[in-house]
């Protein structure tokens, strides 16, 4: 049903739609990053699309796998017509894209979260600051090159509590046998860095 949305996008925007697919029944269109807001606004306002229900906005870091590195992913649906569509835009380093906060009010916090986790700069966002992490945090944790275990404590640890305290033994709670996409961890371990 929402195939028609993709057809309509192709019709109206032509070159700006880089690619479409419907894997697992999710209709997806990859949009040129420079026309991101324009396409989004069209989808909201066009009578045949009427995508007024904001669902989700996030990003994926494809570092090393693909060029350009980041992909911003937007899910929207239409309340009346019941169709859904996924829009994607590929952006490189440093990541920057137009903000959709003026198109859907809901995009506001989702973009802040995306900025927090990936460092994507949303141009035109009214209040782009960290939302889940604290302002003192350096780096963006969901990037593949951020080591998962690197903490940035706000308070000093008690001097006696550097290692594990009794009644816990030193090896209690150690992760084992994990396979990971966290390439940074291996790199950090090579440097002899531990999080304590």
């Amino acid at each position: 049903m929402s195939k028609r949305v993709l057809d309509r996008l192709n019709q109206v925007f032509g070159d700006a739609i880089l690619e479409t697919h419907s894997q697992h029944g999710d209709d997806t269109a990859v949009v040129e990053a420079s026309r991101w807001r324009e396409v989004a606004r069209f989808l909201r306002d066009d009578e045949r699309c009427a995508m007024n229900h904001f669902i989700d906005l996030t990003a994926v870091d494809y570092s090393d796998r693909r060029e350009p590195r980041y992909e911003v992913v937007l899910h929207i649906r239409s309340l009346e017509k019941l169709h859904r569509v996924r829009l994607k835009a590929r952006i490189g380093e440093p990541p920057s894209i137009d903000s959709l906060a003026e198109v859907w009010a809901g995009a506001n916090w989702f973009e802040r979260e995306c900025f927090d986790m990936f460092g994507v700069d949303f141009v035109g966002h009214p209040n782009l600051r960290r939302i889940l992490l604290y302002p003192e945090f350096v780096g963006h944790p969901l990037r593949k090159d951020y080591p998962a275990q690197m903490t940035q404590p706000l308070v000093e640890y008690r001097p006696e509590a550097i290692g594990k305290l009794p009644p816990f033994s030193e090896h209690e709670g150690m992760p084992f046998g994990r396979q990971t996409h966290d390439r940074a961890a291996a790199h950090v371990n090579a440097l002899g860095f531990t999080d304590e």
Binding site: D56, T58, R65, V73, H75, F110, Q179, H181
Partner: peptide
Amino acid sequence: GFYMVSDGSGTPYRVRIRPPCFA
């Protein structure tokens, strides 16, 4: 909602949760 990207291995490449509370 769960938006997931797999690279064909046994480990998720990316799992995104769309939490209703957040909105």
